[in-house]
Computed example of a mutant assay.
Amino acid sequence: MERTLAKTKLWLVNNRDKPIIGEGKAALLESIRDEGSLNKACKKVKISYKHAWLLLKEIEESVGEPVIIKKRGGKAQGTFLTEKAISLLDAYNTYQSILAQTIYDATFWEVIGLKISARNQIKGKVIEVEKEGLIAKVKISIEPTTITAVITKEAADALDIKKDDKVVAVVKATEVMIGKE
């Protein structure tokens, strides 16, 4: 039987529901950040310099403020992202990461499809949340023992997991997931 998969397109919108950035604009901003040069960023994402300027102008019109700073001359010359552009890129990457952990994860669809047996779900209470870098270790008291789930920091933040929360540990052969009631 052929397996079906979900696909999505993500873009951030402003408070007037007008698109700000999607995959292409995010790739351009990320390349500018990495390269420190609009010209090099254009080559990296394979678009013309003129097209890049049009995309940047569209972003700036959507957010109402500049997203790049151009510095000319000296060792500090180049093209750099403003704080606004950095926050847009961070938000886009966070949402993209959440999509990767849910929509693109077959396990997520098993949960949604209710294909998990009751014995794979264990109710418990969070006794500690330790966030470090990109990961979070969530210690869950499940009488008579404690288990630790290692999940992404973004997932822990999205679930707003904190000490004393009642959660459900979903055990799969290769991983332990967490759901919050």
Rank of each mutant, 00 (worst) to 15 (best):
K163I: 11
Q121G: 14
T82P: 09
S48Y: 12
L54K: 15
L99A: 01
Q96C: 04
G64S: 09
I21Y: 04
K18C: 07
K172S: 08
I32L: 04
R16Q: 15
K70G: 13
N120R: 15
T82Q: 04
T82V: 04
V167H: 12
G133P: 01
V126D: 00
E110F: 02
K115Y: 12
N14L: 11
I47W: 05
G22N: 02
A91K: 04
V138R: 05
K123D: 13
I122R: 03
L38Y: 02
Q101R: 15
S87P: 05
K125P: 03
N14P: 01
L5E: 14
I147D: 04
G78P: 06
T145H: 13
I127A: 11
V126Y: 01
L134E: 14
L99F: 05
T148Y: 03
A76M: 11
Q77A: 12
S141P: 04
K123E: 11
T152H: 02
E110H: 11
T102A: 08
P66V: 12
A169Q: 08
A106L: 14
K57M: 07
A6W: 10
E143F: 00
L55K: 07
Q121K: 14
E128Q: 13
I59F: 06
N120M: 15
F80T: 06
V67P: 00
T174I: 10
I151P: 03
E65K: 12
E23I: 01
T4D: 03
K75E: 15
S37A: 10
E175A: 11
K84W: 06
E60C: 13
A155Q: 12
G133K: 03
V67Q: 04
V126I: 15
L159V: 05
K18T: 12
E143G: 07
A149W: 03
I112G: 00
K44W: 00
S48I: 07
E65C: 03
K40L: 05
T146L: 11
E61S: 09
I20R: 01
I135Y: 15
E130M: 03
I59R: 01
M1N: 05
G22K: 07
A136C: 11
W109S: 10
T146C: 14
Q101I: 05
V129T: 07
